[in-house]
Amino acid sequence: MAGEESRKSSRDDRGTSRIGLTLFWIYVLLYGGFIGLVLFRPDLLSQRPFGGVNLAIAYGMGLIAGAFLLAIVYMIACRTVERGGPPRG
């Protein structure tokens, strides 16, 4: 019984870890893209693609909101894994 629980816990850990790493790399791409723009195409950040505010502010706010959004996605996905749903590792 304890062995089965331990195996389930280990499987859950692998599942949540895989979800975490996937979301981590998604954010790395978003963050890296932003830093890339600041370093190499700062002119693009002055443009106002969304009307009111420039891309520098929109992207920056987006990164902050995006972090929260991914955190929520992670929490829901982990709960699904811990309740026995996909993905199984």
Partner: peptide
């Protein structure tokens, strides 16, 4: 602000 918050992604996911 952006960099400080981004660091929490490493904390949460890793």
């Amino acid at each position: 602000s952006i960099g400080f918050l981004a660091g929490w992604i490493v904390a949460l996911f890793v």
